[in-house]
Simulated scan of single mutants.
Amino acid sequence: MIQSCLLSAIPSIAHGFGHRQMLTPEVLVEFETARPYKQQVHGTRIVTVETPGQACGHADGFVTDRPGVPVSIVTADCLPILLAHRSGRYIGVLHAGWRGLMDGIIERMLKQITALQWGELSQWVAVVGPAAGAHAYQVSEALIAQFRARLDLPEAIMSPRPRHLALGAIACHKLESAGIGEIAHIDQCTITTLVDGSAGPREGPDPDAYRFQSHRRHTLTHPDPETRPKLPNQHSGLVIVP
């Protein structure tokens, strides 16, 4: 299980980021029956979760103030972002891929927190979890051009290498600019990080050598979509402990 000291410092909250050997963080397993039902669609809809097992429909962000009700998302190469008020009374989680970052899912989440009157953003902390790293996440020049046109970001943050997108850096910049009090980035690449924490090649001979599930790596390893096995995703989330 992967955790952040920033969230571990809030006693009333349990959190974790999943990985290939432990898809659901062990601290969230006992709350699994209370997990909301949802379908992630790379959108920007944020749902306030008020009851265990709540039906949330299509959504990629969740907030709650209810103890014992976990909020979590599944990812492969997209960003899991966990948020919490320093008091431990309010929590949130985001599934943020390139579409969500471009379309403003972080801004939607912070707008929801403000509308709920759950404290000043400066009293919130955020942890940006493992995702496709800028060194390995190669995209089209057309997509980079869309980011340049729609987001006011320094090039060195958005695309530090030609045709490579820095999801984690973009998210951290957005959170900092919005006034989040403290931000941590677990900068581990889901495409290349090995079980021992070192960085491997983009196309390794042994998928079991890698720490995370990765759709990008999985597609490279199994190029034929007809025979490609289904890839289970890893869960990341948090819960206010009753």
Rank of each mutant, 00 (worst) to 15 (best):
P162F: 11
P162A: 13
R163D: 15
R163E: 14
R163A: 15
H164Q: 12
H164L: 04
L165F: 02
L165D: 05
A166C: 13
A166W: 12
L167G: 07
L167Y: 04
G168N: 13
G168R: 15
A169N: 11
A169W: 09
I170M: 10
I170A: 07
C172R: 14
H173E: 14
H173M: 00
H173D: 10
H173P: 00
H173G: 00
K174F: 13
K174H: 08
E176C: 01
E176I: 07
S177V: 12
S177A: 15
S177M: 13
S177I: 01
A178K: 03
A178M: 11
G179Q: 07
G179Y: 07
I180W: 02
E182L: 12
I183Y: 02
A184L: 00
H185A: 05
H185D: 08
H185P: 00
I186C: 06
I186W: 10
I186A: 03
I186V: 14
D187G: 03
Q188R: 14
Q188N: 05
C189M: 02
C189N: 13
C189G: 02
T190N: 08
T190D: 01
T190K: 06
I191G: 01
I191F: 09
T192S: 14
T193R: 09
T193L: 05
L194F: 09
L194S: 10
L194G: 09
